[in-house]
């Protein structure tokens, strides 16, 4: 059903590309998903107006417009939740980076201060920082899994929207002089759903790579 689904190239996260950039890219893709979901909502409002004008000729189209609107609302709500999660993930990325950096520098201090009178006092700080780093790393991995699962949820309304778009085309074909307007609505919904699907797919690909690397 989906033209590019499994063959769509995922957002590239090469080992050299920092986790920061990857997480920020995911946030940017999600922001685009939100915009597209709003477009679907607008398309639903337009379709409703056209169907109302078309009267009996577009009787089958009227309930479809409500479905489209519901799907758009559902997507917006899901993306809002995901955005909060993505923000948490970004903060954790910063925190983890700082701790990793601290561990690295502490190890450097330990190596260069071997002869210092109080060198041993660093041991506890180093252990505590390593522990905090490990905790943070675990928390990060947990958030990646949760975010992956939420992104899977967003795929459902996008898939449903494409089914509805197919039905809309059939109903539009019986709407006489309103055929073109309603077909345009169906195309617009179909296109938006495809974009959402592709973007979410990219996000999942990038997240999986971060999760694997983490």
């Amino acid at each position: 059903m989906f033209r590019k689904s499994d063959t769509e190239p995922t957002m590239q996260v090469s080992p050299s590309k920092s986790q920061f950039v990857a997480v920020a890219s995911i946030a940017a893709e999600l922001s685009a998903v939100m915009e597209v979901a709003k477009e679907i909502s607008l398309a639903a409002a337009n379709a409703k107006a056209i169907a109302f004008r078309a009267g009996e000729k577009a009787k089958g189209f009227q309930p479809i417009t409500d479905f489209i609107n519901e799907l758009a609302k559902e997507t917006i709500a899901l993306v809002n939740d995901i955005n909060e999660h993505a923000l948490k993930l970004y903060r954790l990325t910063v925190k983890e980076h700082r701790m990793a950096e601290a561990c690295k520098r502490f190890e450097k201090v330990a190596a260069s201060a071997e002869s210092a009178l109080h060198a041993a006092s660093l041991r506890e700080s180093l252990q505590q920082t390593r522990q905090r780093h490990a905790d943070c790393h675990r928390e990060f991995s947990r958030h990646v899994s949760e975010l992956l699962s939420q992104l899977a949820d967003v795929m459902h309304p996008a898939r449903a929207a494409r089914v509805i778009a197919a039905n809309s085309r059939i109903e539009a074909s019986q709407a006489g002089e309103y055929l073109q307007s309603l077909q345009a609505v169906a195309e617009s919904v179909d296109h938006a759903a495809q974009i959402i699907h592709d973007k979410v797919h990219k996000c999942r690909g990038a997240l999986s790579m971060i999760g694997t690397a983490a």
Binding site: R105, K108, V109, S112, A113, A116, L117, H118, A119, A120, S121, L122, E124, S125
Partner: peptide
């Protein structure tokens, strides 16, 4: 400067 500075201070004071 963090690493050289802390390493130097450890000659005079423990971390805590």
């Amino acid at each position: 400067l963090f690493a050289p500075m802390l390493a130097a201070v450890l000659h005079h004071a423990p971390v805590d």
